[in-house]
Every structure is written in C-alpha cells, then in structure tokens.
Design a protein around this nucleic acid. Structure first.
Length: 494
RNA sequence: GGCCUGAUGGCGGAGCGGUUACGCACCGGAUUGCAAAUCCGUGAAGCCCGGUUCGACUCCGGGUCAGGCCUCCA
C-alpha cells in the first residue's frame, strides 16, 4: 500500500513516509509571472497535480497541504513594468490570473496555498538576517548580501549533493564570470540593491551600520522563506522541473539548512522530485525557432483533458516528445474513455443477482491503476490497466448483449471508473457534454431538430433524405452515430 | 571542458534475464441501409561491438548518437 517515489537527493526510488500522515506537505516551484506559460511549464503542474490527487486519495482529502508559489519579484518583471510604465503588480496580477486560468483548464486543482514573494518579504528578510548572524552570509561594499557557499560546504562537502556535483566540480567547470565582489565564485545572491525605477523593500540590517539595506531579494530565498512560512519544516515533498536542481533547489537547501544550523538536508525537505523536459522533435522550444507552444493558445484548439492526458503519456522523469500527433492520439484515447462512460450510462443496469465477479474485477483493476501510480507515478503502466478496465467492462456489455440476462449495477462500474479518473484528473465532465464540445444552445437545438427529421426519414427507410440530413449536420461539424436507442452526436475535432 | 540521463515495432511508450506489454495508426473481417461507435483477427521492436549466462530487449564493458545541467529557464 506504500507510495514509492524517486528521490533526487538519494538518487533512488524510496518508500514515502510523511513526517505526519495527518498533514502531508508538498511544495512545488511555480511560475514567474511576466508572460504566458508555455506547455513545458505545464508539465510539472500536471505531474504534481496527479501526485496531489494521489496523496489525497491515499491519506485523505483534507490531509494534504500543497503549496505552489508565485514569483512576483524578478528582473524580467521589472523590465516589463518599466517598459510599459506600470507598477509591477499590474504585470504580475495579470499573468498570475492567466496562469491560474490556464492551469485550471488542464484540470489542475488549485493548490492549498499559493504564496507570493511580495507577501513574504519579512520572512525573507528575517531569514537573511539569521544567515548573516550565523556567519553564513556576508554583506558586500555595494550592499549585496551573498551566501557563503564554501563555509556551508566545509568539512561536509554537502553543497551540490542534490545535483550530484561537488563544489570543486562546479568551480572547475564554471563558465560564469567571477564577480569581483564575491569571496567565492559559487556564492549566490540573497539580497541586492534595486536599480533605479525598480521596486525597493527594506532589507536586513547592515551589521556595520545597523540600518536596513534597501533592495530586493535574490531568486532562491523566496522559496526557502515561503515554504517554511506556509508549510513548516521539514516539507515532505519538494518538487519542480529538472532544471531547478541546480542552482535553485541546491541553494534552497543550503540557505534553509544554514539558517537553522541543520546539517541534514532532510531537515528542509525529506523528498525531492523533478520532472523531465518536453522535446520538440529534437528542437528546443525557443522564440527564435518560432515553436513556442503557449498553453493559452493550445486550450483553444484542444480540450484541457486531452492536453493533460498527453502530458501524462510518458513517465514524468523521462523526456516527452511533444507533437501534434501526440495530441491527436490523446484526443482519441480520451474520446474512447468518454464513449465508454456514455455506453455505461446508457445501460441503466440494476442490481439483481450475480454482479460480484464484475465488482471484484472492476475494483481490482481500479486498484491496479492506483498501484501503478503509487510506483513513482508510473502513468504509462497505469494507462495500460485503465485500458484493461475499459476492455473488461466492454466484455461485460457483450455478455449482456448476447442474451445473458445478467444485469449489472451501473453504479459499481462507474465508481471504479471514477476513482481512477479522479486521480488522473480526467473524465471530469458528463460524456454528453464532452462530445458536444461546448456547442452553443443554438447549435444544440438546431442539431436536435435535424435529428428528429432524420429519425422520421429513417423510420420510412428514406435513405436519400436521411443522408441529406447527415450531410447538413456534417456541414455544422457534427457527426451522427445511429444506435439501437436512437442517434447520438458529437462535435468533430473537439 | 565538467556532471547527468537516455537510445524499444509506422508513431507514442512500459515491464521483464526465458512467456502477446499497452495505446494510436495500418491491414483483414463482423456489425451497420451507408456510416460512426463497438467487436474479432493479422502483421510489426529492442543503436553498434564485445562480455557474463543454458538463455539478454532486460546485466557488465566499450563505442556511436541524442537530450539535459554547469548562465534566466518546467
């Protein structure tokens, strides 16, 4: 029954044991809000949303606390605000709202907390103050506060453990210019003066003058401060994209441990999880190649569930090739699952006698899907079993259709299906609504009227008229499916 | 240059030292007034070279190629 996850720090798949099973905590690094999120940004959101859903399933809905921050202090935000002549909040509020709407379209549940850097300045400043007091950080002549990496690493060699890289390796392979104000090339910024026109906050006191250093925080400190403020240490699971392993998460560990005098990185976060990158058929997504795929645009062409399903088609730690073909395949798979739901609902089975076999089978398969997800979110294997569940239910229909009057309770089938789809975060709407693909009431009325006409024509075996009406429906981008109990329809390509 | 991953059928993508992954597409068939949906069925794989083994897609070594990080980056 245990959840196993691949922990970046140990480099192994390990059993997950929360510090407190009644309050399982998870922190995932969120967006810097100065632009639209691209599909690569959505991968961690969807992956960790599945983990969130799985944890809720395993520990209870109200036992899991999930925080995903919003970075609203940043150079790119500042630049945009200055370019547009507005306060940074104009930029950050706008894009935070868009981000949340886009992610909601992918069926990502809202995190329990969504802390913003600007709302946690005092926490950051206090932490920097502690770091200075402990000698873990120093103030430069130009008013920057830097973290003293060599001091943290001394004796233990613990800096860079998450990235499996020693401090020596990093300095040896460094392509960074050494800033002349740094004691050590690897030292990183905790606090720095703002440039003219940029927002300024009162920082930690300069030990030599006792006066606060005006400026703004560095990149890493916000996550250290916010995760602690919102979740309390140690965090159970800390996640993000692979690129964050170094330097972001590496530096978070160093800061947070140094601020509290902890030697064990697990005192900050017990488990570290990182998702792999999306591929674009060998090309990197970049503005110069013109192949940046924005979630905001994608959801105009594909239902969010399809995009989500495509993101889950590979294991989260592996690269995933993002292509139009993948989206088309995902659409068909989701369609087939909704078709199954549609068929289940159309049956109106009642509980009568021997349904136990099916109940056991459905529950076993549903359990199997969950079990695969418990194995480090093995979504491909879980998918396999979900399709097995589909086939099993289809087989049951056949059995009934062949005249074996073994009635089956629809509720049992649906429950198994819903448990699974709930953890995956798919099949969250009514199948009829799905196939109508957001058709307007006008269109729906028009289609229904045509279908009535067509039913009359078909009853009279007037095939030319029947086909003429179907052509008219096709012209409306509607596909008709004749069934034993009348016709159903769906909007094509949705 | 340093560090780290990975290479599976047309495409996507898993597990596993010996047994059909699975999905999508394709092809054949059933069903259908014709379709769609659904069902049945066939075909299709493991980068290269060594090694270990009775036996390797699965383990080990080397090579080649690809990707990621080392600088903002999911």
């Amino acid at each position: 029954m245990t959840l196993h996850i691949h922990d970046t720090l140990s480099g192994q798949k390990v059993p997950f044991e929360p510090t407190n099973p009644d309050r399982v905590t998870m922190y995932v690094c969120g967006p810097t809000v100065y632009n639209y999120a691209h599909i690569g940004n959505a991968r961690p959101v969807v992956v960790f949303d599945v983990l969130f859903r799985l944890l809720r399933h395993l520990y209870g809905e109200d036992k899991v606390v999930y925080a995903r921050n919003i970075t609203d202090v940043d150079d790119k935000i500042n630049k945009k605000a200055i370019d547009e002549g507005v306060d940074i909040s104009v930029i950050t509020n706008k894009f935070a709202d868009i981000y949340n709407a886009d992610m909601a379209a992918l069926n990502a549940l809202p995190p329990t907390y969504q802390p913003r850097a600007t709302e946690h300045m005092p926490d950051m400043v206090a932490m920097i103050e502690d770091l200075i007091a402990r000698g873990a950080a120093y103030v430069t002549d130009d008013g920057e506060v830097l973290f003293r990496v060599a001091e943290y690493d001394a004796g233990s060699g613990r800096y860079g453990k998450l990235a499996k890289r020693s401090l020596d390796d990093m300095i040896a392979g460094a392509r960074v210019e050494v800033a002349e104000n740094k004691d050590n090339a690897a030292d990183f910024v905790l606090w720095k003066p703002s440039k003219p026109g940029e927002p300024v906050w009162p920082g930690p006191p300069n030990p030599s003058t006792g006066k606060p250093l005006p400026g703004r925080p560095g990149w890493h400190i916000e996550c250290s401060a916010m995760s602690e403020a919102v979740l309390q240490l140690p965090i159970d699971i800390h996640g993000g994209g692979q690129d964050l392993i170094f330097p972001h998460h590496t530096n978070e560990i160093a800061q947070s441990c140094a601020a509290h005098g902890h030697s064990d990185p697990a005192a900050y976060a017990k488990y570290w999880m990182h998702n792999g990158f999306l591929d674009f058929s060998g090309e990197k997504m970049s503005k110069s190649l013109g192949n940046v795929v924005l979630v905001h645009d994608l959801i105009k062409d594909y239902p969010g569930e399809v995009i989500r399903w495509a993101l889950l088609s590979g294991h989260y730690r592996s690269p995933l090739n993002w292509t139009p073909e993948l989206l088309e395949q995902s659409r068909k798979e989701i369609d087939s699952l909704y078709q199954l739901m549609r068929d289940v609902k159309a049956r109106n089975f009642h509980i009568v006698s021997d349904y136990r076999t099916l109940e056991v089978e459905a529950n076993n398969l549903a359990e199997g899907v969950i079990a695969e997800l418990r194995d480090d979110l093995n979504t491909p294997e879980a998918k396999r079993l979900l399709f097995a569940l589909r086939d099993s239910l289809r087989g049951e229909f056949r059995w009934a259709d062949e005249g074996n009057d073994r009635e089956v309770p629809t509720s049992i089938i649906l429950r198994a299906l819903q448990i699974v789809s709930g953890v995956f975060g798919i099949l969250q709407q009514d199948p009829e609504a799905w196939f109508r693909g957001g058709a307007s009431d006008d269109l729906t009325a028009q289609v229904e009227a045509l279908l009535v006409e067509r039913a009359t024509a078909r009853a009279a075996k007037n095939w030319p008229e029947s086909d003429r009406i179907r052509d008219a429906l096709n012209a409306l981008n509607v596909e008709v499916m004749d069934g034993p109990n009348g016709a159903t329809w769906k909007v094509k390509g949705k």
